[in-house]
Amino acid sequence: KLETFPLDVLVNTAAEDLPRGVDPSRKENHLSDEDFKAVFGMTRSAFANLPLWKQQNLKKEKGLF
């Protein structure tokens, strides 16, 4: 399991300012399950079932792209 970080560490943070080991294209993977659901309004599995373009739009909207 990946290390999780608080939302404010990941949202609207440039790649070079992210904690070590965080993939800038997969910031959402480093949210706790609770934060993930609070941000996206759905579970990880529901998010994973969305088309890629919709996932990317949601990530942009939430500052996690």
Rank of each mutant, 00 (worst) to 15 (best):
D8A: 09
V9G: 07
Q55W: 00
E61C: 08
A48N: 14
S25V: 11
D17N: 13
Q56V: 13
F36A: 00
T4A: 07
P19G: 03
E16K: 08
F36H: 01
N29H: 15
N12H: 09
G21C: 10
W53I: 10
P6F: 01
N57A: 13
K54L: 10
P6W: 00
K37D: 13
P19M: 05
L31R: 01
F40Y: 04
L31Q: 01
A14W: 13
Q55M: 02
L58E: 02
V39Y: 06
A48R: 11
F40K: 01
F36C: 00
L18K: 05
V11W: 03
K59I: 04
W53Q: 05
N29P: 02
T13K: 15
P51I: 02
G21V: 05
L7Y: 13
F47E: 01
A46N: 11
V22G: 03
G21S: 12
F36L: 01
K59E: 04
F36K: 06
K62V: 14
N29M: 15
D17L: 08
D33V: 06
K54F: 09
K1L: 02
T4H: 11
D17Q: 09
E34F: 04
R44T: 03
V11I: 13
F40W: 01
Q56R: 11
E16F: 02
N29A: 12
V11D: 07
E16Y: 05
P51D: 06
L2N: 15
P19Q: 09
P51V: 00
L50D: 04
L18D: 09
N57Y: 10
L2V: 13
N29E: 14
T13M: 11
V22M: 04
A38S: 12
V22A: 06
P19C: 02
R26C: 14
P24V: 06
E3L: 14
K54R: 13
E61V: 06
D33W: 00
L18W: 05
F40C: 00
K59P: 01
R26F: 13
G63Y: 03
K62C: 12
K62G: 04
D33Y: 05
P51H: 01
L50W: 01
R44M: 05
L58V: 07
A38D: 12
P6M: 04
V11N: 07
V22T: 04
K54P: 00
